[in-house]
Design a protein around this nucleic acid. Structure first.
Lengths: 339, 339
DNA sequence: TTGAAAGCGCTAACAT
DNA sequence: ATGTTAGCGCTTTCAA
């Protein structure tokens, strides 16, 4: 059905102006929704735009305005797991969805290990108006200084010290872990083990703290604590090891649903029944939590919403609005059969 | 530790030129790696760049060059599952990783249902030099015409007809499904059921065809075929239904590992043993395939590699190189315990 | 090998 | 309410 239509040259503001019989400035005003344009002129311009199928050139606009109308989503690549993790995927989705309703575009920035400075340079270069930073490990100090140059919003608390003006959207990981742990204790269990997260990440660290506090407050001692990397495989492997080491426990708190999922598998393989012999809870509610056997009792967070809030805050900051440095999101207890 | 350093104005080409004692043209040449620059001048410029911490402005460069040095990753948003699907996540990862080694940036373009024209307009507007399109449903005709205006590469075959010049990177879904099905038949099973994928997607359709051919070639008749949406939940639900309907089958082919995972759960819940009573295979090798009980025998595809190839082909096309319209990727048989 | 100068398409004073 | 004009920061002929 191709009509051999001669490929029209990309319409410009100037062309639209000519056709509508007005100046470029007027066209620009119409395009940008200024109200200082007579209805008649506006109509003419709009028609010309339609006829010419005009679309503004972003580069030109950016150059003239001195801003890019796009923001970066920075993803430390060392986190190869990043994309495999439903949590991050959802955060991205939430942010992208929010931005779809704005003038901003989302640029994916994989910060390569080979050349981390590349990312920094890009961010500094005025190529984006702000940045969303995810999966922030302790060694990612690279962006810390950028905070002064560019509005940034972090997903999950950073581990930086002596920093001011760090904008973070996160849940209260300590409280979440504590609550999940208490669930187990309330079941009358007293020999608690934990599969913790990476200790170079805020979420990993805080969930460990929450667990420890809950255990301590109950007058107990943890029987085992081992750190994984949030993946199902690590949960599986750690649990196998615990079993092999003949550790006696009747309760298990996993810092992520993915690790809980893996642990549950190892438990099943060893013929240990859940929740009868071991009561299990975790943080995160994702497809792993729902599809494990038995389904996991968890403290749910809402990653899409988190992404949305991150994007929203960033845009506000870009527009010069004041926003709180800390946005602590609510969590929700999801009772299933594992505890 | 903040030093109250006065925020330096963003360095420009001009500033660099002044400092290095050369013209802007020369700086531009150095920046762009031209060889028509004397070693001395080059050195001076490089030092000035370092001292001023100069980073080229993309918008200005784009405007001058008439190209954006960025490409879009188009994601039909109706695919809310998109981000939850490890397959897509990996494709994105592969593409992003490849692009990190080039001058191109990746812009995430969620094509919103509310305003699909927005995406089209953006793509047309010369804002990107090319586009990668994923998860292409039959009704996504929106981009079809764009192919003439902008280099595009699809992940997974499209369902468009009468189209020329559609560039696609995919596996041979028919062959993959056939192979997976034959595995079951080779086990001596003759009452085969299939959980198919969405019939408005190439992958869904082709895997059904492959299954049917294998069954037919063996002189058999399928005992049940039901289409899901590639998610674990749909696999679970469909299998429950089949069991409830007292369908007799001793072999099951699932069009995706995720659906196979769900089906395996339903089977287990019904006390049906795998592979003893039912032999199960699927296409896709992901965390679901690995973590199901029993682990799934599958035909693996390599989504990261697919993303990589997609990006590579797109860049080549942008640079005017000729590339084949069809890139069929190899698959690999992964034997596990489910069949 | 280098520089001068003309834009790229748009916005934003400033005038009118 | 609308037009004029001067850039935004860079690339790229064209001359030298």
């Amino acid at each position: 059905m191709s009509m051999e239509e001669p490929r029209k040259p990309q319409a410009t503001l100037e062309l639209v102006a000519e056709r509508a019989g007005v100046s470029r400035a007027t066209v620009s005003r119409v395009v940008n929704g200024s109200d200082r344009v007579k209805a008649g002129a506006k109509k003419a311009v709009e028609q010309a735009i339609r006829e010419l199928n005009y679309v503004p050139n972003r580069a030109a606009r950016s150059l003239a305005q001195g801003r890019s109308n796009s923001i970066a989503l920075v993803v430390p690549e060392n986190t190869a797991k990043f994309f495999a993790d439903p949590y991050f995927a959802k955060v991205v989705q939430g942010a992208a969805q929010y931005l779809a309703g704005t003038e901003f575009m989302l640029t994916l920035l994989l910060s390569t290990e080979s050349d981390p400075a590349k990312t920094t340079r890009y961010l500094q270069g005025g190529n984006v108006d702000g940045a969303l930073v995810l999966s922030h490990h302790a060694d990612d100090q690279s962006y810390a200084d950028l905070g002064a140059l560019l509005p940034m919003v972090y997903g999950g608390r950073t581990m930086s010290t002596d920093q001011n003006e760090i904008y973070v959207v996160d849940i209260d990981n300590i409280a979440a872990a504590r609550q999940a742990t208490e669930l187990i204790i309330d079941r009358g269990r007293s020999k608690l083990a934990m599969i913790a997260g990476p200790q170079d990440m805020g979420a990993g660290l805080d969930r460990l703290i929450g667990f420890q506090r809950a255990v301590q407050d109950a007058g107990l001692e943890p029987v085992a604590i081992e750190a994984g990397d949030f993946t199902p495989a690590s949960g599986h492997q750690i649990m196998q090891q615990m079993i092999k080491n003949n550790i006696e426990f009747d309760g298990l708190f996993a810092a992520s649903a993915q690790m809980g999922f893996g642990a549950l598998q190892a438990l099943a393989e060893a013929g240990i029944s859940v929740p009868e012999q071991v009561s299990v809870t975790a943080v995160d509610d994702d497809s792993f939590a729902r599809s494990s056997t038995p389904p996991l009792t968890t403290i749910a967070q809402f990653p899409e919403r988190q992404g949305e809030i991150m994007a929203e805050l960033l845009i506000k900051r870009i527009h010069g609005e004041q926003v709180p440095e800390w946005s602590i999101m609510d969590t929700k207890l999801v009772l299933r059969d594992s505890h």
